[in-house]
Amino acid sequence: MTERTTADTGQDEVDAHAKEELARLRGSIDNIDAAIVHMLAERFKCTQEVGRLKAEFRLPPADPAREREQIERLRLLAENARLDPAFAEKFLNFIIAEVIRHHERIAGV
């Protein structure tokens, strides 16, 4: 059996602190992820209503002018939040593609 040195004990304290800090940060990340999912669900509820209106009035599923405005707006928001605007644009493009897919399905396209 080996004796534990003071240095080993100190490392255990650092490891314990690091584990606690990781757990705290990961808990925050999990909460944020849950909020994102709930916010996306609410967003898609609204876009489903938009899709129904577009179908009712025979409007096209996609609105390129609105999409450009939203991308520009989101890029500016991202810059102000110190988030990579290119990442924000990719994220919004992914959402827009899904919304258009929903609108096409609602319209029977």
Rank of each mutant, 00 (worst) to 15 (best):
R52H: 08
L76I: 12
D30C: 11
L76P: 02
A16Y: 09
A18I: 12
E42Y: 08
T2M: 12
G10K: 11
A81M: 01
R75K: 07
D8N: 03
R24H: 13
R68Y: 08
V50E: 13
R4S: 06
L74E: 07
I32L: 10
R101G: 12
A97Q: 08
G108F: 02
A97R: 08
F87A: 08
E21A: 15
N31Y: 12
E98A: 15
A78V: 00
V37L: 13
D30L: 14
E56G: 07
G10H: 10
V37N: 09
A16G: 10
K54S: 00
M1G: 14
A62N: 02
A55C: 01
D33N: 15
T47S: 04
L77V: 07
E13D: 10
K45H: 04
R75V: 00
V14F: 06
E104D: 01
I29P: 05
R75L: 01
I71R: 04
T2D: 09
C46N: 12
R24S: 12
L59M: 06
E3I: 02
R105C: 04
D84I: 02
H17G: 13
P60A: 04
M1C: 12
V14L: 09
E21Q: 15
G108A: 01
I36E: 10
H103D: 03
A65G: 06
D12M: 13
I96D: 02
G10Y: 10
D15P: 10
T9G: 05
R68P: 06
R101M: 07
R52V: 06
A35R: 13
E69T: 11
F94Q: 12
E72S: 05
P64Q: 01
A97I: 03
A34P: 03
R73K: 06
I100Q: 01
K54T: 01
N31D: 15
A78R: 00
I29D: 09
K45N: 05
V37P: 06
L59F: 03
P60R: 04
E98M: 14
L22D: 05
V109C: 11
A86D: 14
K19W: 09
V50G: 07
E89W: 01
R58C: 11
A23W: 14
E89V: 01
A41C: 08
D8I: 01
R24N: 12
H38G: 07
P85H: 00
A35W: 13
R73D: 05
E3W: 04
R4L: 13
D30E: 15
R4G: 02
E3A: 05
M39V: 10
L25F: 05
V50L: 15
D15F: 14
D8C: 03
H38I: 07
D12S: 10
E79M: 02
I96C: 05
D12W: 09
M1H: 12
E13Y: 13
